[in-house]
Amino acid sequence: MALLEIRDVTVRYGGHVALREVTLGVEAGRVTGLIGPNGAGKTTLFNVLTGLLTPGAGRVLLDGEDVTRLAPYRRARRGMARTFQILELFGQLTALENVALATRLRRRTAAGERPDPGALLERVGLSAFADRRADTLPTGLGRRLELARALAVRPRVLLLDEPASGQDPDETAAFADLLGELADEGLAILLVEHDMTLVMRVCAHLYVLDFGTLMAEGDPASVRADPRVREAYLGTSTGTDPGTGTAGAGTLAR
């Protein structure tokens, strides 16, 4: 059974449908990929999963428990952590303080001891930058700091929003290894990423989101071979136009 599931989630912004009856699951111990063109609704999906956005319809299940109406911090305490596409670091704090604060945010009664912030920085290769103010870090390093900070709450589910952008190929390769390790440790990882080489390398399962609709899923090889995906990505054959169906009532008028 999937550790994190969403069922039939629909999100509208005014009349624009950002997500349409999306259902997917993220299993423990492997990396699940979520790909799709920009504007397909990937970040919206992350916001629904973490509770920053309440869906118009559908449910979010964490380990079988319905968390759809739960505040973001409660979900985090149940073991969900994320990174952000546009960096959301605590800029006035140092890198180490960013991570240290996160280690303390996990409820004290949670089993096990707190992870060591220094070790987490080490793990993402940021030890040299421990005392740097977070807002002075370049994007690539900032992304790794966000990852360390997310790991600091000892999540069971990790949601990564374009973690490799801003990193060079060597860094990306190291990052891929780290993702593999984390999955082996039993984490359920959902990865949104544009770097297809990385996606194909680390993901055990892929979802393809297009236009707010889940258009394909499966292992990377089968997704790659799926004619609909080829069509959506390469425009080689004709298909239906999902775009014309989304016009809705003028709910923006207020």
Binding site: L52, Y73, A76, F84, L93, L105, R149, V153
Partner: peptide, 15 residues
């Protein structure tokens, strides 16, 4: 300071 800098990040970390 975390809340001032990014309420969204603070909340998704369990604050």
């Amino acid at each position: 300071i975390a809340v001032k800098e990014s309420p969204a990040a603070a909340a998704t970390l369990g604050m």
